[in-house]
Design a protein around this nucleic acid. Structure first.
Lengths: 336, 336
DNA sequence: ACTCGTCATGAAAACGTTTACGTTGCCGCC
DNA sequence: GGCGGCAACGTAAACGTTTTCATGACGAGT
């Protein structure tokens, strides 16, 4: 039966339920001989401990929740993969809830997870301090991912946007570009802001003579196209474009191509993210690769630590995952 | 406190725990007045019913499990999105477990889900009949997705590969192509096989004079490139290529381009899946779009029905989600 | 006026585990 | 031989809920 209970096993093995529990869990306080008998009985009856009963008494669910916003494409998929892998390594289950457009939906999903999870992986644009204090039980281990919040009260983890932007600007300067224009992301977006900051700082430090100039964008391909048109109107004309993400870089390249400008001969173009498309556009896009799965995995690790050691206050920890420069054709270095 | 129990609420509202339960669940058998008082008390104490305790007595977890293979890119993401949306609409939680390389890992994950879920969404290349009978509790509602198994014992749901292939072949014939060669997917892959069958049948029915010819492939871009080279060697040379998926189509186009053949002027190329990259390659790829999120959503719907009506045997139901033709530049119809 | 049904409510059982606490029996030590 | 300690095992309490059953109140029908 799929409904074999611990009592049935106890009867079958001619011991008490307590011994069954001991034998199957710790194994301590039970003779090797009886333990063996119990295991056999359990196997014979296809016994599976009732998860809910165990949770009730143990106060542990062995499950972590992942609350994610409405995410685009393979970012989401890589993130889940990383989280899932790390969770399984720790013997934890993964309860996901995605696609929250507004703060209310996120709050509802968060409440619904109450008591079903031992910890929470949270990535939400709505997660400001007030939201968290309102909707999070303060004793629930939580790791914030890519949040705006400086990890003051919570444990946080995000992409090294600064470092990535620095790498890109250094690369552009190294191959001889002077006037590098930056296409911004949506206002208020943390990733976009950090990338912009990295661009400004690196430029100021390494090439004080080069002008710092920026164009508006919102991460969409269209906004990239529009920015590309603006690039053409600038005097003196920039010789390189650094877009805050790949899709805008692709849109920008389309605008340049439509106006007869050759990439990378006349203007170099680069992006950020290394989406799969990046290597298929012509010319292939130089960009910054971020290991998304690692982001998820490390977040899960951090959460696991918090769950295992509830006493230690790990709040304030803010780790970053590395970003890597991937040079392709669009910045003119490879032959072509 | 986050640890307010139903007893606390009962004391606060000066009623018994039974009344609290009634008021908060059905609302029947309780005066509107007392119900109101109870609700207020519950709100005041921030009471949240303990999920495990409820599961234990109710025998319902309000959770469904999704067991998925190691999936690539945005297919996975779209699938989860569709499932998650439909699950939330039914008030169900989603427990996911992905990245199972081998049958053992899948079996382990499956066992671990025992008792934590009311139903199962299963998509696994390892899920043959024997595997299922071995590892699935036969009384657990289950929906198979894109499985090789004809839905004899279980409820199944998959992509309309036949229909999609038919649409594509009809399109190629309609724009005047005569010799259409098909690039196969990995041997044994159900989707690939069905697409191939659709190709053959449609060609035989609509254009008995056109030769049926096929090249080997394995869904990878490299295999598509290789197939493209073979296309060039064929005499008489085909005037259209239909690849079993987009990545092979893209590889094939690369091979043709590298050998100085113009797409679509000299040879038309088409794929299947409509991956995001498809619209960015040059020329943009004509392909078959499958609404993955809908696949997940419908599977969830089916599962929900099974859970709500445990008596009715819904086994044998096999539904398909529609595929849609998306015409772009690579088959020569749009100007360019 | 008596009874019967209906309805709000409370008491208590049940769900399947884990675990604190007894109760043995055994061994070694004085 | 008594005593203390230890290991194996059983008993029972606890976890927080839902649900069945009993109880009492009240209104209506005869």
């Amino acid at each position: 039966m799929s409904t074999a209970t611990i009592k049935d096993v106890a009867r079958e093995a001619r011991v008490s339920v307590a011994s069954v529990s001991r034998a199957l869990n710790g194994g301590r306080g039970v003779t090797a001989e009886t333990s063996q008998r119990i295991r056999e009985a359990a196997a014979r009856l296809r016994y599976m401990p009732h998860a809910a009963a165990r949770m009730l008494i143990t106060r542990r669910t062995n499950t972590v929740g992942a609350l994610l916003p409405d995410l685009y494409g393979e970012f989401f998929s890589e993130l889940i993969r990383g989280i899932d892998l790390a969770a399984r390594a720790r013997g934890l289950h993964l309860l996901v809830s995605s696609s929250h457009d507004d703060a209310d939906a996120a709050a509802a999903a968060l409440r619904a997870m109450q008591g079903r999870v031992d910890g929470l992986l949270l990535m939400s644009p709505h997660a400001d301090a007030a939201f968290l204090r309102q909707n999070l039980p303060h004793d629930l281990p939580t790791v914030l991912m890519n949040t705006r919040l400086a990890g003051d009260d919570y444990c946080a983890l995000s992409v090294d946007n600064d470092g990535g932007a620095r790498l890109m600007v250094e690369h552009l300067l190294a191959v001889g570009h002077q006037r590098i224009v930056f296409i911004q992301g949506p206002p208020g977006n943390r990733d976009a802001d950090e990338r912009e900051l990295g661009y400004r700082e690196t430029l100021v430090r390494h090439a004080p003579d080069s002008p710092v100039s920026m164009l508006r964008g919102d991460f969409s391909e269209e906004s990239g196209y529009h920015a590309g048109q603006q690039v053409l109107a600038m005097r003196p004309r920039p010789d390189a474009v650094f877009a805050a993400n790949d899709m805008m870089a692709i849109g920008c390249m389309a605008a340049l191509r439509d106006n007869g400008i050759c990439v990378p001969e006349e203007i170099a173009v680069s992006g950020f993210d290394d989406v799969p498309i990046a290597r298929y556009v012509t010319p292939p896009l130089t960009t910054i690769q971020v290991h998304i799965a690692e982001l998820g995995g490390q977040a899960m690790e951090l959460l696991g630590e918090q769950i295992d050691h509830p006493g230690q206050p790990m709040t304030g920890i803010h780790r970053r995952v590395a970003a890597k420069l991937v040079v392709r054709g669009s910045t003119g270095v490879p032959p072509g």
